[in-house]
Simulated assay, not measured.
Amino acid sequence: MSKQVVFTIKLEPELRDTFMAEAAADDQPAAQVMRELMRGYIEQRRQAREYDAYLRRKVEVARADKTAGRGFSNEDIEAEFSAARDELGQVV
């Protein structure tokens, strides 16, 4: 990747000094560490957006199923699992 721009940010002197010292302790240029941090942040945000979209789709499908009458009531689920627990209790 070619270097085409300079990115300037304002930070507290203590934060900059500590960051520079840690990068030096790892034998890495500060710019390389910043690029890695930025790439990690970008990937984290991309994954968060994808997960949010996934959840929205799941909720939309569930709502459509409920509206179409394809869902189960809480009472139906409780009765089914109560029967399953009773059956398992008899097996043990």
Rank of each mutant, 00 (worst) to 15 (best):
M1L: 02
K3L: 04
K3S: 06
K3Y: 03
Q4I: 04
Q4C: 02
V6W: 07
F7K: 00
T8E: 02
I9M: 04
K10N: 02
K10H: 05
K10A: 08
E12Q: 00
E12P: 10
P13G: 10
P13T: 10
P13E: 13
E14F: 08
L15S: 06
L15E: 08
R16W: 08
R16G: 04
D17R: 03
D17L: 03
A24T: 03
A24V: 09
D26Q: 07
D26R: 02
Q28E: 11
Q32D: 10
V33Q: 00
M34P: 01
R35I: 09
E36D: 13
L37Q: 09
L37A: 04
R39G: 05
I42D: 15
I42L: 15
E43Q: 09
E43N: 11
Q44D: 14
Q47N: 14
Q47G: 08
A48L: 06
E50S: 13
Y51E: 15
D52M: 12
A53F: 01
R57G: 06
K58R: 13
V59G: 00
E60H: 12
E60Y: 11
V61W: 14
R63G: 08
R63H: 07
D65M: 12
T67V: 14
A68F: 01
R70I: 09
F72W: 02
F72P: 00
E75T: 10
D76R: 14
D76K: 12
A79Y: 09
S82H: 09
R85W: 08
G89L: 01
G89M: 11
G89R: 12
G89Y: 08
Q90N: 02
V91S: 08
V91G: 03
V92C: 07
